[in-house]
Design a protein around this nucleic acid. Structure first.
Lengths: 208, 208
DNA sequence: ATAATAATTGAACAATGTTCATAATATTTA
DNA sequence: TAAATATTATGAACATTGTTCAATTATTAT
């Protein structure tokens, strides 16, 4: 058959991405297959390749969705409350990140799993979604730097971001046990460590 | 055929792991296939399943090798030089870690890639290899904590470890650009950030 | 109506992990 | 030594995977 015009090209693209999103949520990103998506939306595998160059390309679009969601979480005004200290806001932001990784676990894992498209990853539209992830944290760091020290501030933001991500990653993948001793082996480990990191690090900045 | 007794069971096991190691070094861990290993050692795919329960099981043994190598790098006496300050030793240790991730990139990526055996990952012999990764850093932190604060010291070690790992991970996978602006986009970003992290963090501990 | 265009199909291909009856070789027993 | 037994390598088979593409069909333009 052909041109069933059940859906426009854009609708079909969204249909595919929605199906993929649902499958990942259920079966993890390893459970994502072209045939699975096709069956889910009542089409055949070949159709998917009409709209996406490859499964990797499709994965990139899924990751873009995840990045958008993550940005919304980090840019939440609750993490930039003028009535609270920068440290408090940063801690809240860190908790938001850690909670995001838990709630959207399969998507977050997919985002950071290797074996994804090396090629199109540096498309400007994708890279832009990544770069802006740091900006909420950069804003919170303003009180600690003069306007001349923009470079330092950006560097610090990326440093703190990567550190919290490292904590979160080790906890969430479970590849390396963050928890020490017997107790506190649960989800709280990364939260508590992020707090400690932020307090100590900001303390170190102030007394420089 | 059968029981060619060209090799003992142990020899064959080593033969397979060596071949797998070589293949990963060349083609990355996605290029690792049962048939590829078999061809490499002059056997057939079935043989591999005589010695390893699955490809995941085999991957776990590869990861164990990587963990051993990584431990040796972190436990290098050069990172515990009594003539140098703890900060200097820590910076060197961080650089060792970052350099390891670069030199042994495919193995290091494999170690932290998801989709690996969930089941056997918490075998004691494997978990032990992971736990000891922190001990060199714990040692370096001794001057900052009283013997009563062992828990705090361990927590701090894991925190710093995860942070450096986070820096390294983002740089090495390239998923999130650590480099800010145009220049310094190369390998030095993680090094420089690790230095800053260690200086600032230790500074924060001292003035607590 | 007829022709042109576009989209959907589904069969095909190569490659994957994994299983298992079969064949071939050691080892043990008689 | 000969036969019985235990072990192990084999390779064909199965179910999946991503991906391609000629054929088919529905829509649009003439």
């Amino acid at each position: 058959m052909a041109r069933r015009s059940d859906h426009t090209r854009e609708e079909l693209e969204k249909l595919i991405l929605d199906a993929a999103w649902a499958i990942i949520g259920t079966d993890g990103y390893n459970g994502l297959t072209a045939r699975g998506i096709a069956k889910h939306i009542g089409y055949t595998p070949g159709t998917i390749y009409n709209l996406f160059a490859s499964m990797d390309d499709l994965s990139l679009h899924i990751n873009a969705r995840t990045l958008d969601l993550l940005y919304d979480v980090l840019a939440d005004p609750a993490c930039n409350d003028p009535k609270k200290s920068p440290a408090q806001n940063m801690k809240r932001m860190a908790r938001h990140y850690i909670r995001f990784a838990q709630e959207y676990r399969p998507y977050w894992l997919m985002l950071f799993s290797y074996s994804l498209p090396e090629g199109r990853r540096d498309d400007p539209w994708y890279q832009q979604k990544i770069d802006r992830l740091f900006s909420p944290l950069e804003t919170l760091l303003c009180p600690y730097f003069s306007p001349r020290q923009d470079g330092q501030r950006q560097k610090t933001a990326r440093l703190l971001w990567a550190s919290v991500h490292g904590l979160c990653f080790l906890q969430e993948t479970g590849k390396i046990a963050l928890a020490y001793g017997k107790k506190n082996g649960g989800k709280a480990a990364a939260d508590s460590m992020a707090d400690m990191l932020i307090d100590t690090f900001l303390n170190g900045i102030k007394s420089r």
